[in-house]
Design a binder for these strands. Structure first.
Lengths: 204, 204
DNA sequence: CGCGTTTGTGTACGCATCGTTCATGAAGTA
DNA sequence: TACTTCATGAACGATGCGTACACAAACGCG
C-alpha cells in the first residue's frame, strides 16, 4: 500500500515531519543499494535514519512497502515518449533506456523486489501499479500509433506484443542467463517485428 | 547445491537413511503445496517429517535448497521431444505442456522459488542448472532442426529466440498481469515466427 | 493563551525462528 | 570388537518482529 503516500494526514494536530519521512526513505534506499533487500529491516532503517521504529510502523505496513517506496524515491526515471515515426526506433529507444538502468544496481534491486513480491501480494500490487502500469501505458501508446500509421498488423493483441518485447528483458534480469546487452535489445526488437521465418528473410 | 544429491556419502560408517531422506522431501513438498515457500522452515519440515533439525542441516545448506529438491521430487515432468517437421507445432506443443503445469499449483510454487532465488544465488544456480537448462536444451534442439530444415533464418541467435518464446511466459507467471492461456501461447508463437509488421501480413 | 489532537521518541517486552553446540545412541564396515 | 558415520534430543545466544506504555513536540482552533 505504500503508506508513505496513501495514508492521509489529518488537518489538525502535529503535522507529519517531512524531514523524518525523507530520512527514512534515504536510509532505506542506502541500505537497499549497499546490501540489497535482505539488508532492509525495520530496525536497521530506524537506526540509520535516527528515527523510532514505531514511526516507521505507523506509516508503512511492511518492510516491503518501505523498500519499494525507497526504490521509487531514488530510481524513478522520467518516462520518455519517443515519436520518430518509425515503430522500431521508438521501441528500441524506450528499451535501451530501461535495460541501461537495469544493468546497474537499480536492476539488481528491481529483481530482488520482484522476487519478494512473489510472496507478498501487496508488494506485487505496488510494483504492478507503480512501476509496470505506467511503462506499459507508454508502450501501448507507441504501438497504437504504429497501428494507426499502418506499420503494424491491426489484429494483434497489444498486451501480448508488450509481453513479447518486455518479457524477455525481465526474464534476463531475473534469470541472469544472458546479459542485458544493447545488441540483445536490437535483435529482440528486430525479431519481434519481422519474425524469424526464413521465407521472409529475403524481403527487405 | 541441493545437498540431497551432491554430498557424497562415505563407504564406511552408518549409511544414510533413505527413509529419512524421503520423509524430508515429502514433508517439504507437502508444506510447499499447502502453504507455499513461506511455509517452508527447517523446523516445520523437521516436525512434519519426524526428523531432527540437525539432520536436515547436515544434508542441505539452506531452506531454499530443500524446497527446490522437494519441488523437483514432486513436480519433475518428463521432457518431450516433439518432431512434427513443423517448427510452429513443435514449439507450441512444448509450450502448452509448460503453461498447463504453470496454471496450477506448480506454477505458483515455481514463481515463489524464482522469487526467492533473487536473494539466494545458490538457489538461483540450482534453478538454472536443474530446471531451465534441460528445457532450454530441448528447445534449442527443436530450433536447430528448424534451421537445418530451412524453416528459420540461419543468422538468428538461438538464445535470444528462446528468450522471446519463454521470457513472456515467465513474465506472465511472475507478474500475473495477464493469464497464461492457451490462446496467449498460440499468438505468441505465431507472432514470434511471423513478426507483427503489416507489410508482411499479406504474405501466406 | 490554553486545549485538544496528532506526530514522534525511548524503552521494554514476549514471541518466533534461526543456525549451532553438545552429549548420546544407532547402524553399518573392517 | 573397534571404528566410523548417521541421527536424535535438548538447549543456547542472536536477531528481528510487532506491540505497549509513558512522555515530549508541533500544530489548529476557540
Amino acid at each position: 500500500m505504500t503508506g508513505g503516500k496513501t495514508v492521509e494526514t489529518s488537518r489538525v494536530g502535529r503535522p507529519r515531519s517531512e524531514k523524518t519521512r525523507l530520512a527514512i526513505l534515504e536510509a532505506a534506499a542506502d541500505l537497499l543499494v549497499e546490501g540489497g533487500f535482505s539488508a532492509i529491516t525495520i530496525e536497521s532503517i530506524a537506526a540509520r535514519a535516527g528515527v523510532s521504529k514505531v514511526t516507521i510502523y505507523k506509516w508503512w505496513p511492511s518492510r516491503g512497502s518501505v523498500a519499494i517506496d525507497a526504490y521509487f524515491h531514488r530510481f524513478r526515471q522520467t518516462l520518455t515518449f519517443p515519436d520518430t515515426g518509425n515503430v522500431a526506433e521508438d521501441l528500441l529507444a524506450q528499451m535501451l533506456i530501461l535495460i541501461g538502468a537495469f544493468r546497474g544496481r537499480a536492476g539488481e534491486i528491481m529483481a530482488e523486489l520482484i522476487g519478494q513480491a512473489q510472496s507478498d501480494p501487496e508488494l506485487a500490487d505496488t510494483i504492478r501499479t507503480g512501476w509496470m502500469q505506467p511503462r506499459r501505458e507508454v508502450t501501448a501508446l507507441v504501438i497504437q500509433r504504429a497501428i494507426d500509421r499502418g506499420e503494424l498488423r491491426p489484429g494483434l493483441t497489444i498486451p501480448i506484443l508488450m509481453d513479447e518485447l518486455y518479457g524477455p528483458i525481465y526474464f534476463r534480469l531475473i534469470t541472469r542467463y544472458e546479459p542485458l546487452s544493447d545488441e540483445f535489445a536490437q535483435e529482440l526488437v528486430r525479431n519481434t517485428l519481422e519474425g524469424v521465418l526464413s521465407t521472409r528473410s529475403s524481403i527487405k
